[in-house]
Structures are given as C-alpha cells and as structure tokens.
Design a protein around this nucleic acid. Structure first.
Lengths: 129, 129
DNA sequence: AGCAATATGCTAAATTCTTAGCACCACCGA
DNA sequence: TCGGTGGTGCTAAGAATTTAGCATATTGCT
C-alpha cells in the first residue's frame, strides 16, 4: 500500500490536525490554544514544522504571522475518516453506521433536518436503482 | 475532565485497539497479522502488556494462549468515535454527517437498506417530536 | 520420556516524539 | 532611535514509544 497523504501521525500531530480540520485554518497561537493540555508555544511551532515537512500542512503569510492549513481538503479527510470509522466499528456497513448515528443524535435533530435526510434517502434510492 | 477509559493511545496502541475493536477478540498472533506494517511478535506482546496496564485491554486464557479483548464495550467506543468524527469534521452536526455518509456510500446500499433507513428516520421523528 | 513448536514475561536498547531554549527579525509606540 | 512585544527558525536534551532478544513454561508428537 502506497503512503497516502494521511501519513501516520503521532499523538500531538494528530491533535494539531484535528484542530486544523475543525477550524480550517489557524495560526500557531490559535492551534496552541485549541490543543488539549496545551504544550509550550515552541513545541507547537516545532510540530508544525514537522507536519509541514511531511506535507500534511502548509502555511501562508497572514500579516505578521503564519496561518496554517491542512493540505488535504477537508472533504477528503472526511472521506478517510468515515471510511476508517466504518471499517473499524461497523463492519463496512454504512447502514449500521447511519443507524448508530441517528440513534445517537435523534434528540438533536429537528423535523426539518429529518425531512432533509428523508429526501437524501430518496435521492440515493434513485441513484442506486 | 476526568481521564476517560479512552486514554490517549500511541500510534501502535491505536492500531492494536483498532484491530481489537474490529475483531472483538484476538490472540497476539492474530493482532500481529492485523497490524499495518507488522512489527515483531515480541513488540506486539509488549504493547499488549502496556495496554493491559492502562486498562484498555484484558486477556483471557484461550487454550494454550491468551485472547485479548478491549475492556470498553464496542458500543461505547463507537459512540466516542462518532462523537469525535462529528466534532472534528462536521461541526457537531449529525445531519451533515449522515448526509456525507449517504453520499459516500449510496452505491453500496440496496433498496431494502434504504427502506430500513427511512423507517429509522420516521422513528426518530416520533421520538424527537 | 524427549523434542520441537509455540506461548509467555521481562528487560534493555534503538528510535521517535515532545519539549524548551536561544538567536534573530520586524513592527510599533515612547 | 531605541526598547519592548511577538513573531520565526533552529537545535539539543528529555520523555515516551517501539522494538528485539533471551529465559522460561506448556502443549503435542514420536
């Protein structure tokens, strides 16, 4: 298996990627603030340099400082994450996964949300058939 | 926040947990086989001992060898995984997540699957309202 | 019984991750 | 113009992870 853009991350690296995926873009200080049990600022900088080396992250000048972004689009990171979730916990069964997701968050979904989801299912039906 | 049963895992530890969650239960050799870029057998054993120390895993005698299991139920590991996925990639929006999931795997779903999902949505509607 | 094969437990070494510290540059206000 | 503030790059040490090696059981054959 060739090395995917999602190389293996260390713990801290992963935490940083999580922050970046969540925020889309952040400065070193923001990342530091977003990390659980935040390390020193230098540590964050060093990690970012490593991640940039690995090609997982790139920076752009944002006024006086750097702003970092993941290089892989959020989209494709999402896809991988979903794929991994399915594979590890749901025997590659999207149906089970959707069921779990609905079950777990039924309370947070409004009727309108549910309508939209129902519509999506209809759409899937047409596409699949 | 108290230290949850899901302590921070190192890279290898996580890989091992993934294998265990996927299989439910496995011997050291099976785990080794399931690992990406598998290390030596001793390495796997050592890791398992560490994980057992951390309380993430326990073993039971299975004939001449040990069989390992995660201590947290697959259920609750699932929940955490979903939660993390939602938080990192979907702004805590289950609706977006379900949408992505459907979109990504529409092709793999049969009409019957879709029927079941539609039924689940109906159920959620009743529960939520 | 004796031997090969396959477990396990432990430990020490190699590797990798994580961190802090220091040197330097640019901007801003006194 | 001269600090002070807040950014950057680098590097080296400390901590943790990851690994292999070796000693010791236990099982199953012959």
């Amino acid at each position: 298996m060739a090395k995917s853009p999602l190389t293996q991350f260390s713990r801290r690296e992963r935490q940083i990627m999580d922050v970046l995926f969540k925020r889309g873009r952040a400065t070193a200080a923001e990342i530091q603030a977003g990390l659980p049990d935040p390390p020193g600022y230098s540590a964050v900088r060093a990690l970012l340099r490593v991640l940039e080396d690995k090609g997982a992250v790139r920076h752009e000048q944002d006024g006086p400082r750097y702003a970092y972004r993941p290089t892989v689009a959020r989209e494709s990171a999402r896809r991988s994450a979903i794929h991994h979730l399915l594979h590890t916990f749901f025997d590659d069964s999207p149906e089970q996964a959707v069921a779990a997701l609905l079950d777990q968050s039924a309370a947070d979904l409004s009727d309108a949300d549910l309508d939209r989801l129902a519509a999506l299912i209809e759409k899937a039906r047409k596409a699949g058939a």
